[in-house]
């Protein structure tokens, strides 16, 4: 880089939020700043951007500059050479990705590589699965997985994958969300039999841990659009839990809370009276949400 004059950061006469940069940070950034100004796209600037990213993986300009470099460097290349370059870029992304799992840039860059490579979903779904094995609720990883499924397919194995994660941790709400996403894309959510099947699925997890909010939210999400009266087993589930003594604390609150909506739905005066009295009990049982239960009662 001897032909390049570094361009130092100009914070002005009285700098604010001045960071005590670690060794090497400013030098690399000064060269990169110069490159951004000259617009040079070459192997060496690609390498330089990698050094910027090593210092700060959230530098979105450096990630975008890599895409710009690769596009420019391979505008006249053969398809095979282009593909090879983006494949190497994906490998770069994988290496950087493992250290930066909560970073928007690395996941977006990954998507950009994959979109250019146009390969099948298998390897990528496996990559995400591996990330989720360590960090099962990683928001970026789940968003990426949805993108892979939507743009490359691979839906066949998803139900089993999600169920496996739920068996491991029934409180993995991201996995519940993914089950809903899968259903939205592969099943008819307005079908009664689909809804009943999903209620039964959620009920199995509720039986094991009645206080776990994830299956309750899932069940409501599936049934709400159809109306609770269309799926009588929802009411049976709530009444059953409240009649027995298996559920304590949070489980009873969850069952009562859903029962309020079930009873309120039809507009029957006697049922609504019971809904109001459930709200009264919830004010005590779920005292943190006292104000909410008073409001909910007023809406019956």
């Amino acid at each position: 880089f001897s032909d390049l004059e570094p361009l130092p950061q100009d914070d002005g006469p009285v700098p604010v939020v001045r960071i005590a940069y670690p060794d090497g940070f400013e030098e690399v950034m000064s060269y990169f700043r110069r490159v951004v100004v000259t617009g040079e796209c070459s192997q060496r600037t690609l390498q330089l951007s990698a050094e910027v990213i090593a210092h700060n993986a959230a530098n979105y300009t450096a990630w975008q500059y890599r895409r710009r470099c690769l596009e420019a460097m391979h505008s006249g290349s053969s398809n095979a050479a282009r593909e090879q370059a983006w494949r190497e870029e994906l490998a770069f992304c994988t290496a950087r990705g493992r250290e930066n799992l909560k970073n928007y840039q690395v996941w977006f860059h990954r998507r950009s590589c994959l979109a250019r490579l146009g390969s099948g979903p298998e390897a990528e779904l496996e990559f995400v699965a591996e990330i989720l094995r360590d960090d099962s609720k990683n928001y970026h990883a789940w968003g990426h997985r949805q993108w892979v499924l939507s743009s490359c397919g691979g839906w066949e194995g998803e139900a089993a994958f999600v169920e496996g994660l739920l068996e491991e941790d029934a409180r993995n709400n991201s996995a519940w969300n993914q089950r809903y996403f899968l259903l939205q894309h592969t099943a008819d959510l307005s079908s009664l039999s689909v809804a009943e099947g999903e209620v039964d699925f959620a009920a199995r997890f509720i039986a094991a841990a009645p206080g776990n909010p994830s299956p309750w939210n899932y069940l409501r999400g599936v049934v709400e659009p159809l109306g609770y009266s269309a799926v009588p087993r929802v009411r049976l589930l709530c009444e059953g839990l409240l009649a027995g003594d298996a559920a304590s604390g949070a489980g009873r609150v969850a069952a009562m809370s859903l029962l309020v909506d079930v009873l309120d739905e039809g507009g029957d005066p006697a049922e609504q009276e019971r809904a109001r009295s459930l709200c009264d009990s919830l004010e005590d049982l779920d005292s943190l949400r006292e104000a909410y239960w008073q409001w909910r009662r007023s809406r019956v």
């Binding site: 700098p15 939020v17 005590a20 670690p22 940070f25």
Partner: peptide, 21 residues
């Protein structure tokens, strides 16, 4: 104190300095 100077730990926010402000 942060308005003027930040420790090296904030280098990961070097592309978010208006946020720090």
């Amino acid at each position: 104190s942060g308005l003027w100077r930040l420790s090296a730990g904030y280098a990961s926010l070097d592309a978010s300095r208006p946020w720090l402000c």
